[in-house]
Computed example of a mutant assay.
Amino acid sequence: MAVTMHAKSDSEVTSLDASSPPRSPRRPLYYVQSPSQHDVEKMSYGSSPIGSPHHYHCSPIHHSRESSTSRFSASLKNAHHHKHSAPWKKMHRVVDVDDDDEEDGDGDGGGSAHKVRLYLCFVVGFVALFTVFSLILWGASKTYRPKIFVKNIVFRNFNIQAGMDSTGVPTDMLSLNSTVRISYRNPATFFGVHVSSTPLELYYYQLKVASGHMKEFYQSRKSNRNVVTMVLGYQVPLYGGVSVLGGARNHYENVAVPLNLTFVMRSRAYILGKLVKSKFYKRIRCSVTLRGNQLGKLQNLTDSCIYQ
């Protein structure tokens, strides 16, 4: 009985196998092993995986396919979102750059204004210091006024003769020749002077009888010189104004004519070029007497002059 049942089962199996279509061999299942969260934490802290137990999670291959598909779709969504948000980011960047440029521009304007203020302060300070320095030099130069003395005068000759003026009016005509000697000294220690003078003139009251021009010269510091000037009068009409000369044509030795010698000496000192200069004026008036018996002799004028 037992043998018969076995045989029957074998025939049934054979019939079933013959009647059912052949099946394809089942595909083997593949598993992906990934480290557990505990191992990831250990690796992030730098611990060595050697010697520590490994725990892996096994999942079928179809699960990994679903996860890869979801990841791909998520990446597409992120790319689409990034594509739409990129222009906004670029605009934000442009705005930020413009703001930075404006801030930089404001900073440059403030720096340039600060530099302008510094330059103005420097210029004002320099002008103030230069002005103070110039005033000090100018004030110091005033203590070094030139020393001027009229030493003497010499009447070489004079002559009176009848004649006519430019309009044909007959009158006495006077000719005079004289020399004036002047001592000039510059006591300054740090500047020289340029010296000039108005014409030296001899007057008989209001009548000018002779005049002469002194040559200009330069006097260096701490030096002196003697200046000689010719004072001449030629054919000066008298019109009877000099009464003492009325009868002196043949008796010149008895002539004594009071005269006044007047002139102004000007001294210019260039202390700091032409920016700082000092001027010194000296008005001189000397009382002189023309004596016919002292022609050719020195007449001392040291005590006969007034200096203003």
Rank of each mutant, 00 (worst) to 15 (best):
M1K: 05
A2F: 05
E12S: 04
A18K: 05
R23M: 11
P25Q: 11
R27H: 09
K42S: 15
K42T: 15
S44N: 13
G46E: 13
G51H: 03
H54N: 04
P60Q: 13
S67M: 10
S68K: 06
T69N: 10
F72C: 15
F72P: 15
S73I: 11
A74D: 13
L76I: 10
L76Y: 13
H81C: 11
K83I: 13
K83E: 14
R93S: 08
D96P: 12
D96I: 13
D96E: 15
D101W: 13
E102T: 03
D106K: 04
D108I: 14
G111D: 15
R117Y: 12
V123Q: 00
V124M: 01
V127E: 08
L129D: 07
T131Q: 05
F133K: 10
L135H: 04
I136N: 06
G139F: 00
K142P: 06
T143P: 03
Y144N: 03
Q161E: 11
G163M: 05
P170D: 06
P170M: 06
S183C: 04
T189W: 10
F190D: 08
V195L: 00
T198R: 01
V209N: 03
G212R: 03
F217V: 07
F217N: 05
N224D: 10
N224R: 09
M230K: 05
L232G: 02
P237E: 00
L238G: 07
Y239T: 12
G241V: 15
V244N: 06
R249A: 09
R249T: 07
H251D: 10
E253Q: 13
V255F: 05
A256V: 01
A256R: 04
V257L: 07
P258Y: 04
M265D: 06
A269I: 02
I271S: 09
G273K: 01
K277V: 05
S278Y: 01
R283S: 12
R285G: 12
C286L: 03
T289V: 10
K297G: 13
D303E: 14
S304W: 08
C305D: 08
Y307G: 14
Y307Q: 07
Y307V: 12
